[in-house]
């Protein structure tokens, strides 16, 4: 078993927390993992990505080769398309519909969605709305993680304990809130697929 995931978004959107949550859950499951992060200049509102590889055997490269990613998980719709060369032909693209517009030439959103819909295996959810409805606007990244969670071979409960570990020092309320958003994202994805 090996799952290669590209996480994408804009600097400051919290993709490192998603990576940390998956990483924690993978460790709970005694899986091997490598996760390449982007720090430094790009974190200032630029395009950011993280390569996350989990496997039941040792992982070689820190970077996922082009054409080998099983999943692109994006907190921003245009950013999800930037990494298409990495997606394998049967791979999944899971993206937030909420655009992060900090550039003048941001394309038409509908055109972005239609590019995403061209990919056979895709899930589009409004993670920001899900997070707001659950009462925590800052937790949209956990909604997206929830939406993609059924595509990652880690059990629901291991995800929960991973998220718990990450938010534990911020208090039980934060843990509960993030777990709730995670589950709501997971449900939104299954609703999307059975639409």
């Amino acid at each position: 078993m090996k799952t290669d995931i590209i996480l994408s978004g804009v600097g400051g959107q919290g993709i490192l927390s998603i990576a940390a949550a998956i990483g924690m859950a993978a460790l709970e499951d005694n899986l091997f993992l490598k996760q390449a992060e982007v720090h430094g200049m790009s974190q200032r509102g630029g395009a950011v990505q993280s390569h996350l590889r989990i496997s039941d055997t040792e992982v070689a490269s820190d970077l996922i080769p082009k054409g080998k990613a099983d999943l692109i998980l994006s907190v921003e719709p245009m950013e999800s398309l930037r990494y298409l060369p990495w997606l394998n032909p049967s791979g999944w693209l899971v993206s937030n519909t909420e655009a992060f517009i900090n550039i003048d030439n941001y394309p038409d959103k509908e055109e972005i969605y239609s590019e995403i819909r061209k990919i056979k295996n895709h899930i589009l959810i409004d993670a920001d709305r899900i997070a707001v409805e659950a009462g925590s606007a800052r937790s949209s990244n956990m909604a997206i993680l929830g939406a993609a969670s059924s595509l990652i071979p880690i059990s629901h409960e291991k995800f929960h304990s991973g998220i718990r570990k990450i938010f534990e020092r911020k208090g039980e309320d934060m843990v509960k809130l993030n777990l709730m958003v995670f589950d709501a994202g997971r449900k939104a994805a299954s609703d999307y697929l059975s639409r």
Partner: peptide, 14 residues
């Protein structure tokens, strides 16, 4: 490998 759709614009740090 699949190409990046043309509509994707660069997003430099700011």
């Amino acid at each position: 490998f699949p190409a990046v759709p043309e509509l994707v614009s660069a997003r430099p740090p700011a």
